[in-house]
Design a protein around this nucleic acid. Sequence first.
RNA 1: GGGCGUAUAGCUCAGCUGGUUAGAGCACUUGCCUUACAAGCAAGGGGUCAUAGGUUCAAGUCCUACUACGCCCACCA
Length: 901
Amino acid sequence: MTKIPEKNYDPKSFETRIYGEWERAGCFHAEVDPSRAPYTIVMPPPNITGQLHMGHALDQTLQDVLIRVKRLQGYSTLWLPGTDHASIATEVRVAEEIREKEGKTKDEIGRDGFLKRAWAWRELYGRRITEQQRRLGASCDWERERFTMDEGLNKAVVEQFVRLYEKGYIYKGNRMINWCPVCGTSLSDAEVEHEDVDGQYWYFRYPAADGKGGIVVATSRPETMFGDTAVAVHPDDERYRDMIGKTVVLPIVGREIPVVADTYPDPEKGTGAVKITSAHDPNDFEVGERHGLERIVCIGFDARMTEEAGKYEGMDRYECRKAWVDELTRGGYLVKSEKVSIPVGVCYRCNAAVEPMLSDQWFVKMEELAKPAIEAAKDGSLKHVPERFEKVYLHWLDDIRDWCISRQLWWGHRIPAYYCDACGEVVVARERPESCPACGGAMRQDEDVLDTWFSSALWPFSTLGWPEKTPDLDYFYPTSVLVTGYDIIFFWVVRMVFSGLDVMGEVPFGSVFVHGLVRAGDGAKMSKSLGNGVDPIEVIDGYGADALRFMLIDGSAAGNDMRFTTDKIESARNFANKLWNASRFIIMNLGEGGAEAVPPLEGVDAGRLRDEDLWILEKVARAAEDITRNIESFDLSVATQKIYELIWNEYCDWYIEFVKPRLSGDDEGDKETARAVLISALSDLLRLLHPFMPFITEEIWSFLGKGGRLITDRWPIAAGGGADGAGRNAGAGRTRGEAEAFERAYAKIELVKDIVRAVRGMRKDAGAAPSRALPIVIKPEGAELGAGMETLIGKLANVSSVTVATDGGAQPDDAVSAILTGLTVFVDAGDLFDYEAERERLGKEEDRLEGNIARLRGKLSNEGFTSKAPEHVVRVERDKLASEEDAYGKVLARLASIEGK
RNA sequence: GGGCGUAUAGCUCAGCUGGUUAGAGCACUUGCCUUACAAGCAAGGGGUCAUAGGUUCAAGUCCUACUACGCCCACCA
């Protein structure tokens, strides 16, 4: 008894089940296997801050497609999953939760209590994320799942920190850093975003100390005036030459500050004189360094004014600004002010305005580390797809500054630095020292944790076991490709590359495959605050994971943003439904013995194969090669379009229709042949589609009696020089005779399609009722009409009889005609025929051909074209002209023959 | 200030290294419940590929300029 699929495509009925089967069978597990080439992708670990969004779904789908293709091609494929602790983001969320649930602050709970709750959070959200990934069909090796704060990774982080410290690449220094007053921590440059806000320039007069004149400076941040330590002017600026070396007085504050000459001020800008606040601005800091200025901190870590601000001490920085400007204005120091747009740095997590601050922090010296990373992109060992992203990568590295890696947070890898309070000794070590090596006193560990990206930077090798020398690391590193969004190129890609080169001496991946954002239907960025996010799980519930996956890949080019619309997801779901029903039809027609009784294609006598059989096999073979090429060059959406077209418009629309009469016929042998070809072609279609729609393809596969699982079956054709060198290309190994037979059959069936389409069109034009079968006459004019052509046409065009009008044979005048390449088709529409309509029809054709012929003649009479264009291009144009002229002649003749009727 | 992207059918988008008459999905028109599929079948309509130059035998595709929108980077007081 043959098992037949349910009538309706219902992804819910099998997706979860199939995933479980794959997982239990160990299909995702990768083995170190020296006999095969490895193919490795480390998953960009999603943050445990929440759940997966549409961007993750895209990211994961792309990786899964690549992994599944390579798995089918016979590589030992490892897709290593994991999650990221996302230090600052998670800390903020956990603190929020604690405030809501317990009404307490972080400090009230304490470090240990906080970490306990953070780990609980990690358990909950980490699991939720991996469940969502399973729903999507991610075929990653769960046995190798990692977390950026697990024990092994902590070991890697400590090891790398110590190594860099010992090399002198990590240092602690009192430098200008970005401070987020809300998150209460320092930030790296990458973590600061720039926003333009409405602001103002205030021009204030700083009187000269000697009472003669003064200098007007412009500022957008008057409140930093309390920290001013100089006024700088350009040495060549005539206006201020006399002032250099003198001192001016800070209005109201009364403190005297020097006027220094420095090349930093641009005479063109503002007044050409710049107030220098060496403790609150990176540029001013440098000017201060050059001139040995003191640093006065007037804004504290809480974004409130310090005692340096006198009576404003304790006031918020922006409130102080207002009050202070008022006071200066009243004092007559304000010269003018103007509204202007000011770029301000904000925290990428909480959006608060970042304050440049002087602070003791740990840094990674970037200059030496960046060099090989730049080199890798330039010498091609690291390729970006699409290429344009290499610019983004290089640009970031080119003017990179030292990386501030310490964070004043609790959730993260604690810095392995230890201090002796007794003698001031600092020890950076893999293990906590028992006591101070200098004085024997007690050691205290640094309170701070590391930037979350410090651990992410090690991800491609730390997850494979580094610093241990493991077989995994040896076999799977370097990884094959990194798939990620363009928005985290410098957060992550750059840092992985320089870390990989530093630690392993090799780039962590040869290619970076960059994708864009998934936007809402109106083009807006999906975001929580806008509430326009689409939950991938809800989409999967409604349409199936396969539809979501297909939709995410189809119809968007690599690196470009895409919009999520129901149109698209429905279209993808409909495609799945189409495949489902076609497969169902085939399975229903397998006969008594079911799938097992159908012989494999190799078991069918080649002589039994009909033209349409050869045609579909050839179609599939050609498409398979194309699709493989597209996938290998990361043109995944091109690949999906081709497979969509192949399945729907060739296999379903034509082949299945061609074969229907045979399936209901009496010739058992022929029936068997048709079944064998149907299944063979379908199998390849399933293989080709599987990476994109893994569930439905696996489910259908299980009905085909082929045994095994599709996920671990084989790709239709061998990878170019890949792991599977068996040369399984469907067209490979054919004899010359066979190849010619395929060619002939292919051309013949394409002609049949043209005839069918022409007849359908003519029937419609004539207004023939769909149920009314009409006789047709085919007049061959050079085309080879094989036997069996008539039956193929008859059924598909609703034709009652096909007469081949051999030379001299009857050629009806009172029939609708269509002139095709190598033949003319007449539809005997009987009472519906109308000479006037026929003439109109032919007239249109005449016009069209005239246009074409004129264009082609022009082209071919162009000496430049015939002499310079490649031979095959010219030949195609010549052939085209010849056939158009031929058709034109026939149209004229036909018009003449019915003239006056 | 620097860099990048996008502009192709009413809408959303493909179009790889330049080479037939520029494609798809949705929408639209017409006709169909044809025993796999109305989430479907069949036949159609619809585009001077943003604009202006240029290179070339040949440009949606390459170059230059320009316009509009979008994004990224940036230490302009």
